Computed example of a mutant assay.
Amino acid sequence: MEHLIALLPLLSSMPALQVFVGAAVAVTCVAMVLRANRDRHEVPPPAPGSVGDAMVHLQGPAEVLSLLRDLRELGRQQVEHLARIAECARVARDEAKAQTDLLRSIDREQVRNHGHDWRE
């Protein structure tokens, strides 16, 4: 890095070299801008968000309706499964409550028979 800094006084004494480097940089920048403008018109349209989006786009409205029907059927099945899960949870809660009541009655019976609480 120091050797580049040492070249600065030498380069400042050569105005022709400065003009040449400046012109080369300017021509390169203009060429890049023109190339970008030309390439922008040749770029294909952006890709869809996913492979599924592309497939629906290629297959048409009939396929979209079929996919919507499939989604509706999956939603209906999901509702049925959630109802079954809710029923199982209710049965498990009722069973746990019944077992808790049974344990309390056993505990009361033991206190009545032995005259004290075994947990003390």
Score class of each variant (00 low, 15 high):
40 R>I: 14
31 A>G: 15
15 P>T: 04
104 R>T: 14
58 L>Q: 00
100 T>W: 12
60 G>R: 06
37 N>Q: 13
44 P>H: 01
89 A>V: 02
110 Q>E: 15
18 Q>E: 11
59 Q>W: 02
28 T>P: 02
92 A>W: 10
40 R>V: 09
99 Q>G: 07
52 G>D: 14
111 V>F: 15
16 A>Y: 03
51 V>C: 01
96 A>L: 12
37 N>W: 10
1 M>N: 13
35 R>A: 14
61 P>E: 12
10 L>C: 04
73 E>S: 03
30 V>R: 10
76 R>K: 10
119 R>W: 12
25 V>E: 06
84 R>K: 04
84 R>P: 02
88 C>Q: 07
74 L>E: 08
98 A>F: 12
107 D>E: 10
41 H>S: 12
90 R>H: 00
30 V>I: 09
51 V>M: 01
32 M>Y: 14
24 A>T: 02
54 A>Q: 05
37 N>I: 11
69 R>C: 10
45 P>D: 05
41 H>T: 14
119 R>V: 10
101 D>F: 13
4 L>D: 04
83 A>S: 04
52 G>I: 11
47 A>Y: 06
76 R>N: 10
13 S>W: 02
39 D>Q: 14
72 R>S: 05
120 E>F: 08
10 L>K: 05
113 N>C: 12
48 P>K: 01
48 P>S: 03
15 P>L: 00
92 A>Y: 07
103 L>H: 14
103 L>P: 09
100 T>H: 12
89 A>W: 03
71 L>M: 07
120 E>K: 14
90 R>N: 00
99 Q>L: 12
31 A>Y: 15
83 A>M: 05
62 A>Y: 01
104 R>N: 15
46 P>T: 01
106 I>R: 03
82 L>H: 10
52 G>L: 14
87 E>W: 04
96 A>S: 08
90 R>Y: 00
40 R>E: 08
27 V>G: 08
72 R>Y: 00
54 A>T: 01
8 L>F: 06
116 H>G: 04
40 R>N: 11
51 V>N: 03
106 I>D: 04
71 L>G: 07
6 A>N: 04
46 P>N: 03
84 R>G: 06
31 A>T: 15
115 G>R: 02
118 W>V: 01
84 R>Q: 09
119 R>I: 13
96 A>N: 09
46 P>G: 02
95 E>H: 11
43 V>W: 01
7 L>E: 05
8 L>C: 06
91 V>P: 00
91 V>C: 07
42 E>I: 04
52 G>T: 14
112 R>Y: 15
100 T>C: 10
16 A>L: 06
81 H>D: 08
37 N>V: 11
18 Q>V: 10
45 P>L: 06
15 P>W: 02
9 P>W: 09
1 M>V: 15
107 D>G: 06
44 P>K: 05
67 L>C: 04
42 E>F: 01
31 A>F: 15
23 A>P: 08
95 E>Y: 13
119 R>C: 13
102 L>C: 03
54 A>M: 05
19 V>K: 07
26 A>Q: 13
46 P>C: 01
58 L>K: 00
8 L>M: 11
55 M>G: 10
21 V>G: 07
78 Q>D: 00
86 A>Y: 07
47 A>S: 10
45 P>R: 04
9 P>H: 07
108 R>A: 13
22 G>F: 08
8 L>E: 03
83 A>L: 09
96 A>E: 11
108 R>M: 13
96 A>W: 09
